[in-house]
Design a binder for these strands. Sequence first.
DNA 1: GTCTATAGGTCGATAGAC
DNA 2: GTCTATCGACCTATAGAC
Lengths: 195, 195
Amino acid sequence: MARKTGSHSEITGPRIREAALRLFARDGFAAVSMRQIAAEVGVQAGALYLYTPDKQTLLFDLLKAHMDDLIAAWQAEPVPATPTDRLEAFVRFHIRFNLDRPDAVFLSYMELRNLEPDNFAEIEALRRHYENRLEGILRDGQAAGSIAAPDTKLAALAIIAMLTGVNTWYREGGRLSRDRVGDIYWDMVRKAVAA
Amino acid sequence: MARKTGSHSEITGPRIREAALRLFARDGFAAVSMRQIAAEVGVQAGALYLYTPDKQTLLFDLLKAHMDDLIAAWQAEPVPATPTDRLEAFVRFHIRFNLDRPDAVFLSYMELRNLEPDNFAEIEALRRHYENRLEGILRDGQAAGSIAAPDTKLAALAIIAMLTGVNTWYREGGRLSRDRVGDIYWDMVRKAVAA
DNA sequence: GTCTATAGGTCGATAGAC
DNA sequence: GTCTATCGACCTATAGAC
């Protein structure tokens, strides 16, 4: 239990963030104490304040890092030639990316209300940026005649809500593989906005 | 500030539940104190315990009442003749019902994790019951040949996630009327599971 | 039915030793 | 870099007066 004396600055910071992510996702930001996070890492509560100015900043940094990862990962994906193929890539990317980091995804839509106004605005802007990437695909498809959505903004929100919902029920080793889930959702999305 | 002496038992109970619903939805169960709820109602914290045995039961009662309302309201809807018409009725019902009580809806998917295991299991069973009502419609349509879903269970979950998502962005007096939102979502759902 | 008072505990954050 | 100790505030829930 007792910590060995010594210097661990390079690894303690990341470990604090990992522990905070897991505990916030499991019990909720307000329900988790700094003492619990410290215990998980194996340090005393006071030591956390060498790595974060306060609990709020710890939450913000986790959400910010997740949104930056999400946007960078989508940016790094290859871009298929047609809007329909780009839409399929988006569907499969979103499911895969979210299933790979369920805690961060959960935190990002459960703990928004615990952000202070400025922090909230920054995360919201990133979320809207991501939604706009999808809406752009739908608009392109509409212009090309391959996609028909009654309202591209609502279609983008509806598709993202539907895809993110996978995280609430998917279990590794369950009835369906990830690829099969991707196939099923792509079938529904494709038809929902088919011309 | 000081309360007038007197008896108010018939109205204090409901007012406590209303205040708790609003505050839990706004700030989160763990972040709201019994003192805050009491202050909102205009009584002292100790008086709350005449109406609820503890904070956990207060949360459970709010979620249970919401799920019971939801299931009873859907049960009370007229039942159209064809599965496709029943699906349309479900889509419009779900959007309308949820937009009428955003706090209760928000609470019902944000605070599940703050329920103790037995309470959680009871709410989850009600949620599954509601999902199964939708899946039944999809199965009927599949059997009749008017609906084609690659997986009726996943289609039901996807549709509910998509519809519930409306609550996150809809604002009264905004760009779209409720009926128009219902039209747009029905268009997407209809096509998504079209035969 | 509501109040005041309080028991018994936890919290976030800081100070200062090592 | 981490620890121990602590401040001041707040928490849930209960006891007992009115």
